[in-house]
């Protein structure tokens, strides 16, 4: 394995700097966001590298659990930030975070306990990267799905209410939107699975191969990860949709768009 030096990374960073400078004239706000995001990547990944180093040296369930919860909390905030019309109050944070918790954590536990079967099962070398991959991808699916749900419900308010006026129930009244939302949540992972290996070499696998792992082993892990992500993102989307739809209607089956923040 060829170890990367600070100089190597700085050369790559020049690419981002060049891009930021070029976009300065077209859209200064994006240039700024690009710079901040690149800086965050460098700092956050360095920090997590240090944290993992310490964690690998003292693998203890408590530390793994704490780091997992911290990752979940940040992912929940990220989901909330990506909504155009989010649920107001704690719901805006809670629905996304709870859905991610249910899907990512249970899929990660399933993979660690049943599929990988390491001793101890919470070995951070497996648990943290796995959970990270799952959280990252379910976060995308859930953020897209919730955004679609709330914006479609606002746009199609008249249709939903027309159906309610005819005595339709919640599920009937929102049937079309539900399909769109589910599709929105699942399309990224479906596309990723369909293109994997032909159009794109997935990042995890590429990283493993660059780091010197035998290709076939890397591929096996990548397939595992893909399936886990599909499960995590799919069930996460289902959960988010379930809680979201529930919150959109009240006990008297009124469409409550006032529960969305403006």
């Amino acid at each position: 394995m060829i170890t990367l030096s600070l100089l190597d990374l700085s050369l790559a960073a020049l690419l981002v700097v060049a891009l930021a400078l070029s976009s300065l004239r077209i859209y200064p706000k994006i240039a700024m966001q690009l710079a901040v995001a690149a800086l965050r990547t460098a700092i956050q990944l360095t920090l997590i590298g240090l944290v993992l180093k310490v964690l690998f040296a003292n693998s203890h369930l408590l530390w793994v659990a704490l780091l997992s919860l911290f990752m979940l909390a940040v992912a929940g905030r990220e989901v909330m930030a990506r909504q155009h019309r989010r649920f107001s109050g704690w719901w805006g944070y809670g629905i996304g975070a709870l859905s991610m918790f249910i899907s990512s954590f249970s899929v990660a536990l399933f993979a660690l306990l049943v599929v990988i079967g390491n001793q101890p099962w919470y070995e951070p070398q497996y648990a943290i990267p796995l959970l990270g991959m799952l959280l990252g991808n379910t976060m995308n699916g859930i953020a897209l799905a919730l955004d679609r749900l709330t914006s479609a419900a606002s746009e199609q308010r008249d249709v939903i209410e027309a159906r309610l006026m005819l005595g339709h129930g919640r599920d009937e009244a929102i049937a079309d939107i539900r399909q769109q939302v589910f599709r929105t949540g699942l399309i990224p992972i479906i596309n990723a699975m369909a293109a994997a290996g032909i159009v794109s070499l997935p990042g995890m696998m590429t990283g493993q191969i660059l780091a010197g792992a035998p290709p076939v082993e890397a591929v096996k892990y990548q397939i595992l990860i893909m399936f886990l992500i599909a499960g995590g993102a799919g069930f996460g989307t289902l959960a988010a949709m379930h809680f979201g739809v529930k919150r959109l209607f009240d006990k008297r089956l009124r469409l409550r768009l006032d529960r969305l923040a403006r």
């Binding site: 008249d158 249709v159 209410e161 027309a162 159906r163 309610l164 006026m165 005819l166 005595g167 339709h168 129930g169 079309d176 008297r252 089956l253 009124r254």
Partner: peptide, 23 residues
Amino acid sequence: REEIDPRSWRRRVACLPAESRWW
């Protein structure tokens, strides 16, 4: 009204909006 399921209520007390919607 509150003793009746909202779906049955709206079937019995039927509202026609000024502009109809079709799905």
